[in-house]
Design a protein around this nucleic acid. Structure first.
Lengths: 357, 357
DNA sequence: TCACGGCGAGAAAGCGATTTCTCAGCCGAT
DNA sequence: ATCGGCTGAGAAATCGCTTTCTCGCCGTGA
């Protein structure tokens, strides 16, 4: 009963320090209990439906809640429950379309279960990954690490420390589940496609050194080379952005003179940049050279010529990440690892190999 | 001393329910205090540097913290402090490049102050905005509403309720600070540009009905018309995406026959889609018709022809949002409202008006 | 009719920090 | 030499919930 007798926070000092922000501290569960004439425990029970309560009590609690506009304090709840219905997503760069797609998928899927997503951008700095992940994890119930750049051993330690965690697009030791894209397979499919069009000498424009997905693609290049003895695949360093592709055009042009007839760009941005520059240089695509991208960004289909690419289900990836996270949070096993096989979207930028003069 | 004597969570029941997740409950401030032989208050003081403490105590506390690998519980801290160093960002669509840019800028700026960003996507559903914002706000210290679709009156109520709040790209009654882009001004600058090139009849491809930034652009169209009596600006419904622009090509072509020589697309995506289709139709840009975009997405400069656009400082916008939020959280006034004037990037897609036959 | 099991609801014990309260000790001033 | 004020550190209150504990009450079976 005397739980009510709290000191009223009136204006103790009418003349001094009248704060603009009237701290109208919102109703607490105690207020609701008092108003409904029941115990806090009952209020909690009604609100959480954990056990059966007298319909009469339910009614009065609901009324009190409505009257007071009561909303439970999430901070208090997370303190006692040890979780806060939030997960974190750590990415090297929020501006990367792939991560954006995953974020969207994750965020929507998590929202359906009452979870929210916290984002943390390491701005491509490897040494930020550990502290950022650890710090982010402290605010959340679980975490997803997107394409971490960390060396394998440090990554393994990190995932163990921030568990439950799921890793995207990167193999990792330990029992953190991984959801990823089979880049190697994509490249092999692509080479297959080029080979069937009669191409015998290809050029792969490689992405960033530290990128695991670039390593995967390189593996794909190696596998494809082994599978197609008649096809030679050269590799040149390039990058991952529009201007990297643009800048690679000269290199591509000189490669043409050496018999290269097809270019596999690291991703669509590189391919699009390359196409732009090739057009300016008067190099016909796919007449003189075929070009392919990777990721199938929306713009790919709208390029001229429309870009042949490998489609990656970004949002689906995010949703898949969420289903793993949810399982882990619930203490269940995360389920089998998944890797998505990119789907080849053949468009206009690839065609029959030109007859070499 | 006996704070250490926590029951070891060994296998109490070797045969039953061996949990995979060994719940090693981490050290609390009480453990640290016990180990250092001081009070919890002192530990807190040392960790927060709120008041001067005996160097001897400082040392022993630091040691205990290190030994135990102690990390304070953020949940407990937020309960007592009433804030949790997190802000929320509510957007209609996480896949929109503008919001992505803002998110990036906000997230990076906030991180520098130890704050993290929670994202909430309303997937373009107007009626989701209120509940989503309210719910998100409950987890955070402040919130930013990006381009809310809500009617003015409901928006005003909402911002009051979820204060401190900052609104992006949308005017709002009440005292929530707004940071935005002066779309109307951008359009006027654009029309000026077209007019100076001799264009006299233009077509504006409008964005989504419910978009406030589209309304702003329309206002810009009206103002420009008033300012340039010699220039006529027609308006046609279109959309905001690549395929909307693509689909609008026929409409544009027929407009050409009626003397239209310049097209102002709602945004770059629309413009890019349009360019693609026009090229396929053999319509020369800017020979037969000039085309401009809005937003200056990275691809704009790589289009063929390179797209004339209005550059919007997305990341800067995000940083600006953060500075307002921080001020509001600190209880300070938010500072003057800002609107960024888009910068005209003249490229190849706009040129002199063709001489009408 | 009595004992016991079960159920429903209030009392109270946490959750893990911060912050106030309290008090001992020390300094300088009278 | 004594007292007031200041400083620093421990004890305890507090934040707002959930969850266990406890107990009264009711129904059922012997």
């Amino acid at each position: 009963m005397y739980g009510n007798v709290v000191p009223k926070m009136g204006n103790r000092f009418p003349d001094t320090e009248v704060r603009m922000t009237e701290r109208v501290k919102s109703a607490t569960i105690a207020d609701v209990a008092a108003r409904a004439g029941v115990s806090q425990a009952s209020v909690s029970r009604v609100l959480n439906g954990k056990s059966t309560v007298d319909p009469e009590i339910v009614r009065s609690v609901r009324r009190a809640v409505a009257d007071l506009g009561y909303r439970p304090s999430l901070a208090a709840r997370s303190l006692v429950q040890g979780r806060n219905q939030t997960v974190a997503m750590v990415v090297p760069d929020l501006e990367n379309p792939l991560f954006q797609g995953i974020l969207k998928g994750l965020s929507v899927a998590a929202a359906a279960d009452g979870y929210r997503v916290l984002v943390a951008d390491t701005v491509e700095r490897v040494d930020e990954e550990e502290p950022t992940a650890i710090e982010a994890r402290e605010r959340c119930d679980a975490i997803v690490l997107c394409a971490p750049r960390l060396p394998a051993d440090r990554l393994a330690k990190l995932t163990a420390r921030v568990a439950p965690a799921v890793v995207v697009n990167r193999a990792v030791d330990g029992d953190a589940p991984v959801v990823g894209v089979d880049y190697a397979r994509g490249i092999r499919d692509l080479v297959e496609h080029f080979a069937s069009l009669g191409h015998r000498r290809l050029l792969y424009l490689a992405g960033p050194e530290s990128s695991a997905s670039n390593a995967d693609r390189l593996r794909g290049v190696a596998e494809a080379t082994a599978a197609h003895p008649g096809v030679e695949i050269r590799v040149a360093a390039c990058g991952s952005r529009l201007d990297d592709g643009y800048a690679a055009a000269d290199l591509v042009v000189s490669a043409l003179r050496e018999g290269v007839t097809g270019v596999l760009a690291f991703n669509d941005l590189v391919a699009l940049g390359l196409l732009t520059r090739l057009r300016a240089l008067g190099v016909d695509v796919p007449g003189a050279v075929s070009v392919s991208g990777f990721d199938d960004v929306p713009m790919a289909a709208f390029a001229t010529p429309a870009l042949t690419s490998l489609s990656v289900p970004r949002a689906e990836l995010g949703a898949q990440v969420w289903s793993r996270l949810r399982a882990l949070i619930a203490g269940e096993p995360a389920g089998h690892p998944v890797t998505y096989r990119p789907r080849l979207e053949v468009r206009e930028s690839t065609g029959p190999a030109p007859v070499i003069a």
